[in-house]
């Protein structure tokens, strides 16, 4: 578990380090996600060395964004003022996204 955590935080740090020095417009953790995938594919690290920590983190992923959800209370007035256009745009866009990705697979799948 300790080794797995070291790998996860190591790749997070690596991602942060690269975005820090090269000022690319992508978050360090997203870069870390990409790099750890690459390292696993190129067999630089073993799945069983990282899996204990990654499984636990994914299991509790939803818990970790609760504070951001609570933070919405600070912006309650903004949401209240624009709830109608926001709802319309977000629901319409979500239905379109669902349909477009589904229809491509439905038509082209072998």
């Amino acid at each position: 578990m300790l080794k797995a955590l070291a790998y996860i935080f190591g790749f997070l740090l690596l991602g942060e380090l690269i975005t820090y020095f090269f000022e690319i417009p992508i978050a360090g953790n997203i870069l870390g996600m990409f790099l750890i995938f690459l390292a696993l594919r190129l067999k630089l690290i073993k799945l069983q060395d990282v899996k204990p920590a990654s499984d636990k983190l994914i299991k509790y992923l939803v818990l970790f964004f609760i504070p951001y959800g609570v933070g919405l209370m600070v912006y309650f007035e903004i949401i209240a003022a624009y709830w109608m256009p926001i709802s319309v745009a977000v629901i319409a866009s979500t239905v379109i996204t669902l349909y477009i990705s589904a229809i491509i697979i439905e038509k082209l799948e072998k």
Binding site: F11, L12, N29
Partner: peptide, 14 residues
């Protein structure tokens, strides 16, 4: 709590 979002994104790569 939200600090763990960072490593969780890396875990998504796994």
């Amino acid at each position: 709590i939200s600090f763990f979002l960072g490593p969780s994104v890396v875990a998504l790569g796994v």
